[in-house]
Amino acid sequence: MASFAAVGLMFAGGFIVMILEIIGARYLASEFGGSFYVWVSQIGVVMIALAAGYYLGGALADRWQCLRRMAWLLVPAGGLVLTVPDYAPPLLEAIVLRHPADAPIPMVWQKLDPALGSAVVFLTPCLVLAMLPPYLIRISARGITHLGRLSGRIIAWSTLGSIAGVFVAGYFLIDWLRLTTIFRSAGIAILLLGLLCHPLSRAFAPEPVRDESGADHE
């Protein structure tokens, strides 16, 4: 049960991160244009979110050791994504229009502005989603004998979700749905993941972690 739950959470988390990354590049283009730097920014910012999320997720997992608490982060992140179409446009516009009109934007800002815009919209939710893999590795682990296999499986499922997210977003969602609908759906999906943490946390009931020597850790 714990294994299925972990795999499902991983897949969903990875899936949503890449949905956000791909449609985000589209979304940012209506504010920052179709410049090369929009894609560069989007990829760079999501990678920053992943690095920070892995780090924080690992640290929090050691402290909290309980899936239920992830809801405290996932639910607000879902709310954030749900409301992107409402709160983001004025913020992005402020980034663009802070430069004096009728003068070229300095090259450094042509490069950095899309990254700022991307960070405003995507950094926080992607960071929270990236906390899931280390978090789940920690709460699923029952000793270190199979820890390599366990962590490999969890990270692989997360990445498989991401792969699916890339293609589903790029090949289908962009053609079928409005960006607004995609943001709202992704937000609701993250909210649901957060709410699921509560019932699922029983599957990861904490128990004394034993290593090979049989000595209790805590």
Binding site: G33, G34, V96, L97, A101, P104, I105
Partner: peptide, 15 residues
């Protein structure tokens, strides 16, 4: 010639 994205140019231009 202005080296930038066309839509960005229009958005920021008063011309």
């Amino acid at each position: 010639v202005f080296v930038q994205d066309g839509r960005m140019f229009l958005r920021r231009s008063n011309a």
